[in-house]
Design a protein around this nucleic acid. Structure first.
Lengths: 127, 127
DNA sequence: AATTATATGATAAACTTTATCATTTATTTT
DNA sequence: AAAATAAATGATAAAGTTTATCATATAATT
């Protein structure tokens, strides 16, 4: 597979964020680099990058499909306050199971991210 | 909220399967009960049932959004052979974590379901 | 330089989901 | 029971998302 400047741009845009963006965001960003890039090219390259394992797709309930250039084993925390998806290191997670045939798993936590929790605490202290 | 016969039909269709179907499947099935039901009504009722917690929506990487009338705490196994999603009882799963602010999590296992594993074994024994 | 293979941009087509609105159905009030 | 009110529906338009098509462009190979 060739690594065209379009494919490079899509990949770099994803590498430079930890925000797990959707296609619309990725498209907007790559257009800052290659103004006339086609949305079709963005979709195509996301698929290609997925198929060679350079990126991951992640599904959080009710949200549009999002992409992640961090392909290392990690979990996600979906913040119920701000909707942000935060990376969670697997050193913080311990999963044991007795299911036959499993070769991997994805775990998504739902709750309040550090940032929102700090904001809440701060506003409560004021009262 | 009223429980119209359309809402009832959508809910019953979901209750009578463990296949975690998508909207298209649910629509087809409810039309067997109410032939002139509108696709809009199906979407609407899925949203309503979601909002009152009677059903759950689940996201598996790369698949369309699927629905589940089993709202008890359980996990899923997505079969990499046949694509089927199988319910996993939480007694088979033990998750420990040290993440602050978390109130729940969703865990999805990927691998080979019992059925496919049995088929594989059978075909290998023949050789 | 010519040939071959791959990727692209533009856009149409397909598909999914939501919004609109007049009509229908159910509930409440009188 | 009839009238008034509220909620849900069906049909369909609109919006949004993703894939397919194809002529052109770009890169690699011969």
């Amino acid at each position: 597979m060739r690594f065209s400047k379009q494919r490079e741009a899509v990949y770099n845009v994803l590498c430079q964020t930890t925000s797990h963006p959707d296609v619309a965001w990725i498209y907007a960003r790559t257009r800052e680099i290659i103004p006339n890039i086609s949305i079709a090219t963005v979709y195509r390259n996301l698929q290609e990058l997925l198929s060679i394992g350079k990126i991951k797709k992640l599904s959080a309930e009710g949200y549009a499909e999002r992409y992640d250039a961090n392909v290392s084993d990690h979990a996600h925390l979906v913040c119920s306050c701000c909707g942000k998806i935060v990376d969670i290191d697997m050193s913080q997670v311990d999963v044991k199971h007795s299911i036959a045939g499993v070769d991997r798993y994805e775990i998504t936590f739902y709750g309040c991210c550090d940032e929102c929790r700090n904001n809440k605490d701060a506003s409560q202290n004021k009262q």
